[in-house]
Write a protein that binds this DNA or RNA. Structure first.
Lengths: 189, 189
DNA sequence: CGCATTCCTTAACTTTTGTTAATGCACAGG
DNA sequence: CCTGTGCATTAACAAAAGTTAAGGAATGCG
């Protein structure tokens, strides 16, 4: 967690103490949910260990939005900020150990220390860039290209997430992903 | 501009003065570019009047990313933050009047006044939510649904942007968009 | 060990979307 | 007023992706 934060800012000891007081631990067993649609997100989570899937339901089908490995932070930002019920689910794909910080504490942190406000801003800025790139890939790259990018950029996710969830993350069907993989094996190597 | 900012924070007079000193005006004629691929983004822009298209080139084709109407802010955040050359173009679709603030001034603002740091954080948080929703729509909704959402949510963009640019924004071809529109006319109404 | 479950693959078929090309309309510039 | 250019539509055809269904490997559990 510390190294995650220090990639972005350099808090002094007092800043750290303030922050660490607010952290709580939580464990999730495989298939447990951190958040379900209809609930309001009140915490930001940091993955110490395990793997969390963000997905949502449309017409009874689960669509994967993202996968969070060790060293990632996640929450439903929209729900957290507005207090509206979330439309998303966050589910442990493996047994997980999380560090949580409550939104109310986060606000106190922002108010008390400029460096944490900065942390919030910089984290959000990075997040914008990441999501924007993902969005553009969806418009401009073919499913095969998106799959290849995933292989290159997030091989660890590929190893630990079932293929049908990868497919819905890429915006295609499991059948089609299987075809793409075969095609790559035959032609590419 | 003022009302745009005040939707997010309430700066006092000193805050405002600090901010307004940093603003510069810029006009663009139709088809002028605010930024071209290869250049580094050094300013954030606010659209006072006109309409700006964000697009990029792939295989010689222009793909529209977003359209900024009066009252919107834009820049290439990635280029702005990293100093790397942008991959995007920002082009005036109509004669435009912009307010600019330099990244260097922005940094000074953040350093000098906590409220502007907060403005930055909140703006970015909103942006994350917006882009995330767009991304999810691309994965989970059909082109027709995406077009209908656009009709509902951004009718003003539809009125002022050529249809083939709308198509590339939706991730489909102009021909297909035309088919969708006909289909909606025949069945929907 | 046997059984159920989950998940990946494959095939046959259908639907959706893209491609190419032709037509016609509107509008700007000479 | 004429003409070129850009743009939307349409049709015919091609390619990409989805659907359904079946089979088989791996896994977990009694």
């Amino acid at each position: 967690m510390r190294s995650f934060v220090e990639q972005v800012i350099q808090p002094n000891d007092a800043d750290w103490e303030l922050f660490e007081q607010m952290l709580t631990e939580r464990t999730l067993s495989r298939k447990d949910h951190f958040l379900q649609a209809g609930e309001v997100a009140r915490h930001v989570a940091f993955v110490e260990k395990g793997l969390v899937r963000n997905y949502y339901l449309k017409d009874g089908n689960a669509h994967s939005v993202y996968f969070y490995l060790e060293g990632s932070m996640f929450t439903d930002i929209h729900s957290l900020l507005t207090g509206q019920p979330s439309r998303y689910y966050f589910e442990a794909l493996e047994d997980c150990q999380l560090l949580l910080i409550a939104q109310t504490d986060m606000e106190r942190l922002y108010a008390q220390s400029a460096i944490w406000e900065r942390f919030g801003r910089l984290t959000m800025q990075r997040q914008v860039v990441v999501v924007q790139e993902m969005k553009n890939a969806l418009v401009f790259d073919s499913p095969q290209e998106r799959y290849q990018q995933l292989v290159r950029q997030k091989p660890r996710i590929l190893e630990r997430v079932p293929q049908h969830m990868i497919a819905s993350y890429l915006g295609i069907t499991p059948v089609h992903l299987s075809r793409i993989r075969r095609n790559l094996l035959e032609t590419g190597a």
